[in-house]
Design a binder for these strands. Sequence first.
DNA 1: TTGGAATCGAGAAAGTTTTCTCGATATGCA
DNA 2: TGCATATCGAGAAAACTTTCTCGATTCCAA
Lengths: 218, 218
Amino acid sequence: MQNNPSLRREIPEASLRRLPIYYRSLQGMVAAGASRVSCADLARVLGLDPTQVRKDVEMTGIVGKPRVGYALDELVRWIENFLGWNRPKDAVLAGAGSLGSALLGYERFRRHGMQIVAAFDTDPEKIGQRIHGREVQPLMFLPDFVRQHKTPVGVIATPAAAAQSVADLMVSGGIRAIWNFAPAHIHLPDGFILQNEDLYHSLASLSFKLEANNALRR
Amino acid sequence: MQNNPSLRREIPEASLRRLPIYYRSLQGMVAAGASRVSCADLARVLGLDPTQVRKDVEMTGIVGKPRVGYALDELVRWIENFLGWNRPKDAVLAGAGSLGSALLGYERFRRHGMQIVAAFDTDPEKIGQRIHGREVQPLMFLPDFVRQHKTPVGVIATPAAAAQSVADLMVSGGIRAIWNFAPAHIHLPDGFILQNEDLYHSLASLSFKLEANNALRR
DNA sequence: TTGGAATCGAGAAAGTTTTCTCGATATGCA
DNA sequence: TGCATATCGAGAAAACTTTCTCGATTCCAA
Ligand SMILES: NC(=O)c1ccc[n+]([C@@H]2O[C@H](COP(=O)([O-])OP(=O)(O)OC[C@H]3O[C@@H](n4cnc5c(N)ncnc54)[C@H](O)[C@@H]3O)[C@@H](O)[C@H]2O)c1
Ligand SMILES: NC(=O)c1ccc[n+]([C@@H]2O[C@H](COP(=O)([O-])OP(=O)(O)OC[C@H]3O[C@@H](n4cnc5c(N)ncnc54)[C@H](O)[C@@H]3O)[C@@H](O)[C@H]2O)c1
């Protein structure tokens, strides 16, 4: 089994977003003691279309056996490797507020490709505090830290108004990808990776569907 | 101007998810003192395709004027109304841990269609504590609370292992929509609305792109 | 008043994703 | 051993989304 990262080609964003769901289900199956799994099994458990699951799994390049499916542990490791989740990247956090603290305390990120190694803030009250084992540092130290440690990822959990300037600071230090939790539109130079975590998307979807649902009930 | 919710038909999920982005930009323009806006303006600011913006805006049913665009304040209110963001729905929270506390403290939800009115937990240490002005109640009180207040939304911020049972409890009380932050696959009966907030999607996307990017640089 | 430019609105085209269909293959059972 | 069946893999079809194109409308400036 070799899963060569450089062979990875185009994969639909939609497939990429479903892989973690499969991964989680598969881990549950491992815990339950199973040793093999087919795409049909996965589809059944998750209520998805079996063909879609197969197409997604095929994307990762793993080959299965007809009539059998895949070796469960191999598939799990294959997906980990495909996503890079077995090679955690360092990240710095900007904004050690309530959301930032929750993120700092969330150990599981490490098993999913990322570990927050340092936290930065502008608030003198925050600076010097230890949050989940990491001391909050002044924001102005961020670029040097990133440069010295070659940190690839920056997490933004500051107020929206500060998001763009914090992003610029991260870029100046050599960050390559930004995970943004602030409800702000951030512009990055070409070639940088931006992942917005926008709760308002969900809120819009929830609210809209709830009202549509209301309308039906009348 | 009438924006009749019952007239709302099919709207692509993708469009629905972009509306909050437009909404946020539009608010920025209001703050900057503008009074009219065209789809082309929005597209320019956000780096999107103008036709896509127009299609999305059209979805909401608002009609604009050629050569002029839309009255900015009207468009903002139109989107609010379309999404139901001007009619906040009550929500209960299960799991008052670090993420749950952050959510409880996040006042802005109210301006986006949702307010968390009560929090529930199973931990005796947590129960009775006040978090951001709301007293944490025993989880077993949740169904009665939901029934009495006709609360439409439940937010799950418990560990993944508890997510399904908490969801069942919410459904038993009459919840109609669930916003799930736990990394768990939840099954709800037909007709119920489920919105998963899955950070692992982002993590997968970030991690994968970062590695692809690495490969390029070599 | 008239011509030019910007924009909306709508239909067509292109591209993408999902679903369908079918042949090949491995397994288990008679 | 041979047959029925579950599954993979791959290509085709269908559905959906995004992008293109163009006519109609309105505004602005000459
Ligand atoms: N709390 C939530 O549940 C939640 C949910 C969704 C989105 N968000 C978003 O996440 C962000 C943080 O939310 P929060 O609730 O943690 O807010 P918060 O006020 O608790 O924390 C913000 C932190 O950022 C720090 N900060 C301010 N300016 C900064 C700068 N220029 N550089 C570095 N740090 C700076 C502040 O000192 C503070 O510690 C906000 O943009 C918010 O909209 C929060
Ligand atoms: N902290 C983060 O940044 C983060 C990020 C993404 C996802 N999550 C997910 O959100 C959930 C909560 O995370 P957290 O960091 O706040 O964890 P946490 O341990 O701080 O909080 C969990 C809370 O849920 C309570 N709880 C346990 N079982 C319960 C039950 N059956 N009913 C009601 N409450 C119950 C616990 O007492 C605790 O207060 C987890 O599923 C986690 O995976 C957290």
